[in-house]
Nucleic acid binder design. Structure first.
Length: 505
RNA sequence: GCCUCAUUAGCUCAGUUGGUUAGAGCGACGGACUGUUAAUCCGCAGGUCCCUGGUUCGAGUCCAGGAUGGGGCGCCA
């Protein structure tokens, strides 16, 4: 049995492939089956003259996603996806199935999410899952190469480590326990034992967020390093992200092509990232400070004008097609083609109209940004819109950041947190910082956040016994994948997303 | 929790100021076609217009409430 991804080593030879009928077309004496076996896609040609009438009729009857075994000769053909096709000499049907729910056309998101267990078989989803795998592998590669020790933080925790977010409550032998929202505090403990560690595990947030970048269950990678300060931390974030993106580009060119990902922005990660203090970032967001001669407000107003122009253009395109169809004399195929184009344009218009509604709000919120606030999603979009490489913002007002972040010794109003914002509107994919080592300040902060002190006694021990400067960060796996693949929503980056309103399948 | 947009055939969508028996394409099914890659042709089947109530001679269309979903805000990775 051969794998589709290895066909190049079998050209001219007879192979056996086992897989599923991904697509099928037929003519009088030929059936074209696009077979997928999990490693790739390959066209198999079943010729009436080679397999006989009885078998040929079976081939004709195959429904989409039927499982089959085919045997035949590998022929190189540049026209084909993957570059090879199989001239079938014989085949067996494992199961011939009918009425596969996902048709060969565009579907809506809701329908596809209901069919997620089947949707994973389609080409785009296949490509995304392969990228996900490559990202995960690249992350491990990087940290293992750099001498980090992987650790698993507990999923059940007795307390909220940041206090502010909603947690999923469970019953742990009669006492309330929460699903973890971060393994970081445990990571700090482990870093004091191992030097450099990273966690890689699921994380849960019960935020009722209905946005393109939120999941209730997602995977987070949290390195923690002893003897690192905020600047060492930023150096590591930059090196880490650069390495992961480069490795994924190297390993998944085919997948990124299926996703029609323009890799320009990914290649840009080879260049130095932008580092801004919160103060500078705020000045840019408000439009008080220019970047390359431009203010955010100009850029956004341009975007808005462009969006409006695009909508107008699409609308006139629809009108033209509609009147062309109404005029008559068009072949049925042409009519279909135009109707499809109209549908597609209408969908694009819907999305653009959302932007049209949102951009003025963003503009407004950017203009009126109050110093001292945390960035909202729109502020991130506005800021990153100004650059084409990732942006790291550090030294935040300590009130808006987590209790465990170290204060800037030169300005106690600032905490040494750092957020990394991905380009192309993807916003925050990394959040981290240097940790507070001053026990007294930590205790004050725990009170300030109204967290239960007794839950943190072990954490405070870390400051009592061999306390050292240390830092770390958390990376949202799904957000990183969404950006690398340039997907509109994180829900496509995880096999079975758990989000507000979605527990099935 | 708030704002906003949507819900019509298996799927994607039309449906005019409220007016007879609600349409198209795709898919499915039946047939035609020697190489296709969602663009060939003929035929056929397919509907609780999200739910409840209201206005009206008459509601897919208007109003109110609700449900579900998309997106945004808040919050975050």
């Amino acid at each position: 049995m051969a794998a589709i991804q290895d066909l190049s080593t079998h050209v001219g030879k007879e192979v056996e492939l086992k897989g599923w009928v991904h697509n099928k077309r037929e003519s009088k004496t030929l059936v074209f089956v696009i077979l997928r076996d999990g490693t790739g896609f390959c066209q198999c040609i079943i010729d009436l003259n080679n397999v006989g009438e009885e078998n040929f009729n079976v081939a004709t009857s195959l429904g989409l996603e039927s499982s089959i075994v085919v045997r035949g000769k590998v022929v190189a053909d540049e026209r084909q996806v993957g570059g090879y096709e199989i001239h079938v000499t014989s085949f067996d049907v494992i199961q011939n199935c009918a009425d596969y729910p996902i048709a060969k056309k565009e579907h809506g998101v809701d329908f596809l999410m209901d069919q997620r267990h089947l949707w994973l078989r389609s080409k785009r989803q296949w490509a995304i899952m392969r990228v996900r795998n490559a990202v995960i592998y690249a992350i491990h590669n990087f940290f293992q190469r750099e001498g980090f020790v992987q650790m698993d933080a507990p999923v059940f925790t007795g307390n909220a480590c940041e206090g502010t977010t909603d947690l999923f409550e469970t019953d742990f032998y009669g006492q309330p326990a929460y699903l973890t929202q971060s393994g970081q505090l445990y990571g700090e403990a482990m870093a004091m034992a191992m030097g450099k560690i990273y966690t890689f595990g699921p994380t849960f947030r019960a935020e009722k967020s209905k946005t393109r970048r939120h999941l209730s269950e997602f995977w987070m990678i949290e390195p923690e390093m002893a003897f690192y300060d905020i600047f060492d931390n930023m150096d590591l974030i930059e090196k880490f992200l650069r390495s992961v993106v480069a490795e994924v580009m190297e390993k998944c060119p085919e997948e990124l092509e299926i996703l029609e990902r323009d890799t320009t922005a990914l290649k840009k990660t080879a260049e130095p990232f932008i580092r801004l203090t919160y103060d500078d970032a705020v000045a840019i967001i408000r439009g008080e400070k220019e970047v390359n001669g431009k203010r955010t407000i100009d850029v956004l107003e341009d975007d808005l004008a462009q969006t409006k122009a695009q909508i107008a253009e699409l609308k006139s395109d629809i009108e033209q097609r509609e009147s062309a169809i109404a005029a008559g004399g068009m072949k049925k195929g042409q009519v279909n083609f135009n109707l499809n184009a109209i549908d597609k344009n209408k969908n694009t218009i819907k999305q653009l109209e959302e932007d049209e509604r949102n951009i003025p709000q963003w503009l407004d919120s950017a203009r009126n940004f109050t110093y001292g606030n945390d960035f909202g999603g729109s502020d991130e979009t506005v800021l990153t819109r100004m650059f084409d490489v990732p942006v790291m913002v550090y030294d935040w007002p300590h009130q808006v950041k987590a209790f465990y972040l170290k204060r800037n010794p030169d300005n106690l109003n600032l905490a040494r947190g750092v957020d990394l914002l991905a380009p192309e509107g993807y916003g925050e994919i990394v959040g981290g910082g240097e940790r507070e080592t001053n026990e007294q300040l930590l205790i004050e902060k725990i009170h300030e956040h109204e967290l239960p002190m007794e839950a943190f006694d072990w954490y405070l021990d870390l400051r009592r016994f061999g306390s050292v400067p240390h830092a770390g960060f958390g990376l949202g796996l799904e957000r990183l994948i969404a950006w690398i693949c340039k997907l509109p929503h994180v829900r496509e980056t995880i096999p079975f997303p758990r989000m507000y309103g979605r527990l099935k399948p």
